[in-house]
Amino acid sequence: MRTSSLRKVFLGLLGLAVFILVWKLITDAKLVSPIFFPSPERTLASLIKGLSGGALLGQTLETVQRMLLGWLLASLVGIMLGALIGVSRRARAFIAPTLELLRPLPASAMIPIAIAFLGFSNPMVLVVIAFGALWPMLLATIHGFAAMEPRLYEVSAVLGLTRLQTIWKLALPSAMPMILASLRLGLTISLILAIVGEMLASRDGLGQSILLASRSFRSADLFAGIVILGAIGLVGSRLLSLAEARLLRWQATR
């Protein structure tokens, strides 16, 4: 077991090294013009320069902050609304079909609507992020509540629990796996919409920064921005996976 995972790490690093080498060979041979496609060294240099005193660090913080704010807003509203709708069979019957109907609507299609109401502003970007990330959490919470063991609802009736207690003590824990999975999806959506929002509304952040870099053909800066965006996505989803594993420990022992 140990040796096989060691082999995997070794091969993985080797694969990454080959990937970077191929990238370097392509750029060194000028198969693609360096104006469009920077070499790995130039990307790294631009990354280091941008993060140590350059503009990149501030822009990264802007984007991460925007993403997290929108995501938190969406999570709070989504789970609360979802719990209120999900706990009542009647509310589910009336509201869930409309929500399902709206689900395939691309979140980005709401951007023009948000612009019409709020203009090109920070609140507009935040609303777009929160609205887009809301759906997975709202629907996951409703589905999680609907899928709860019916006997648990009977138990809550027998114990004379109030609706709030039922939500807090029985329904939320049992819907937790679905909600946690949707939180991760929501974070991905938040990052995407944060970038799109910054590009469109010219708000400070990585989205605007990479768009400007591409317009002025600063390809090294562009790739450095993309590397950071990838890192944000990676770290975010890894952290949530960890949280998921911790919070769902009880499931394994069931």
Binding site: V32, F36, F37, I192, I195, L211, L222, F223, I226, G230
Partner: peptide, 15 residues
């Protein structure tokens, strides 16, 4: 994989 697809818009636009 985690690189958001919209981040590729400027690259592909340039190419």
């Amino acid at each position: 994989r985690p690189v958001p697809v919209v981040a590729l818009i400027p690259v592909v636009m340039m190419l």
